[in-house]
Design a protein around this nucleic acid. Structure first.
Length: 435
RNA sequence: GCCGCUGUGGUGUAGCCUGGCUAGCAUAGGGGCCUGUGGAGCCCUCAGCGUGGGUUCAAAUCCCACCGGCGGCCCCA
């Protein structure tokens, strides 16, 4: 264990990397469908930029250090800060600005299962409009992305911070900002702990009878129409936002929407609609979360801009993909070009290169191993086909093509072989586009 | 940052309580049996006690510290 990794870091190994690429592809395609431009903000920011979002205390929770010239810098802990900084400082952008990013982040947290100090997120943000259309766009984006990944059971829980604030102020008569924040924090735990536990935990900070009312209010959760009708009796003006949002989502064909007033999310900057995406197993935690954060552009000097967005954890999504029973993406047919002896070694490499130039994945042994070993390697590498080349094939200008799964062999010309492989490849592509 | 559990080849483990021969087994990797046809079998081989101290004639085993992993708390921007 001499050359181990620093705490909380890991290598992304081939199996996980493959799944991560699936998520990245689905995200990139969804960005194109919705007209979000892709970019990646700088991984390193000045510390003051990172602190703008949530105060100097952030320093303890991120990778922050002095560079060789003594500048205080930090590794990005989310993509929102960098994207917002970029948008805010580019005066020539046309609004709405819709941008997405898929990139690695660093946080100095205690590592735990599915939680590392270096991890990936995807992120889509819409800047400019303050209306609920932009929120609907972002929720629809999230829904569509999970659909594309085949995680059809993902449901989106939507809440509204404004509505909660109005309820706390008007109905509970609490005005003190810090107290309101504590109450929100408590409410956020409703999905993790029992009411009793929460009331006890906060008994020193918040009047239990008041908190209890809020928790009851927050337990309003379920099918949208039903929750909205039960909200009527409270006569809260902010309810209109949710009504409009739900209506828009219906027209957009977004399904699996749950109204859940206990959704709070991070306290530092969300201001309106907030939402989280869950799989059937809620213990896994949210796969993605987002909402409206109009405060942040204002912090960066653009109070005229609205902002709403969503960020998703790639590691949790990969866990969900692994648990899913549905068939995983079939591999393109790969071919192993095996050769009988040294004399035809060079010819085999020629064949493999020819296939690759035709866009067909092909492998060839690099170590002059015996035919037996080459076939063994081909079968372990999960190749679909083996091409076998010996002196006979070289002189007749043909190859043996063998289906590794059923062991059947054929003697074909190189052109015929290429055509066969291309047909198989096409079938796989059609399969992929259907799912 | 705090609390609890835990650490033996790449992976999974036996041995630890009760200190004592060359740290055992399985699997994965490399090779051979097998010089133009793979997945089996047999044989060989590579590879380990997280790190550093202490106790002892003797430490994987007992003690301490650190490091890593897992679970929880805080936080989740």
């Amino acid at each position: 264990m001499k050359f181990s990794l620093p705490r909380g870091l890991r290598d992304i190994e081939p199996e996980d990397f493959e799944l991560m690429e699936q998520v990245r592809e689905a995200f990139n395609q969804t960005c194109r469908l919705f007209g979000f431009d892709l970019m990646e903000p700088s991984p390193l920011e000045l510390l003051e930029t990172l602190e703008a979002k949530s105060g100097a205390s952030i320093r303890d929770e991120i990778y922050a250090f002095k560079d060789k010239s003594g500048r205080e810098v930090g590794l990005r802990f989310d993509l929102t800060v960098g994207l917002t900084r970029w948008v805010v400082s580019n005066r020539s952008l046309q609004y709405p600005v819709k941008i997405g990013s898929f990139a690695g982040l660093w946080r100095y947290d205690e590592p735990q299962y599915g939680r590392y100090r270096w991890f990936y997120q995807w992120d889509a943000e819409a800047f400019g409009p303050r209306n609920v259309d932009a929120d609907a766009e972002v929720v629809d984006f999230t829904y569509s992305l999970f659909r594309r990944l085949g995680l059809d059971e993902v449901s989106i829980h939507i809440g509204d911070r404004k509505l909660l604030e109005e309820y706390i102020e008007r109905q509970l008569g609490v005005k003190d900002e810090l107290l309101v924040a504590e109450m929100m924090r408590a409410l956020d735990k409703v999905r993790k702990k029992s009411l009793q536990e929460i009331l006890e935990e906060y008994s020193s900070k918040v009047e239990p009878s008041t908190l209890s009312q809020l928790l009851d209010f927050g337990r309003l959760s379920g099918e949208a129409e039903e929750v909205l009708s039960r909200l009527e009796e409270y006569r809260l003006a902010s309810t209109t936002t949710l009504i409009n949002l739900i209506d828009l989502l219906k027209h957009r064909g977004v399904k699996n929407v749950v109204l859940d007033l206990s959704i709070v999310r991070g306290l530092d900057y969300y201001t309106g609609i907030v939402f989280e995406a869950f799989t059937a197993d809620q213990a896994l935690g949210a796969l993605a979360g987002g909402g409206r954060y109009d405060i942040l552009p204002a912090v960066f000097g653009r109070p005229d801009l609205g902002a709403t967005g969503v960020a998703g954890g790639v590691d949790r999504t990969i866990i969900a993909l692994k648990r899913r029973a549905a068939p995983t993406k079939p591999k393109e047919p790969t071919v192993y070009v095996a050769y009988v002896n040294k004399e035809v070694h060079a010819y085999a490499q020629h064949i493999a290169s020819t296939l690759r130039r035709e866009g067909l994945p092909a492998e060839v042994d690099l170590a002059e191993r015996t035919l037996r070993k080459q076939l063994e390697a081909a079968s372990k590498r999960n190749s679909e086909y083996v091409i076998i080349i010996g002196p006979k094939e070289l002189s007749s200008n043909k190859v043996i093509i063998k289906n590794i799964k059923n062991g059947k062999e054929d003697v074909k010309s190189i052109t015929e072989t290429i055509n066969l492989l291309k047909q198989v490849k096409k079938k796989v592509e059609v399969w992929c586009n259907h799912t």
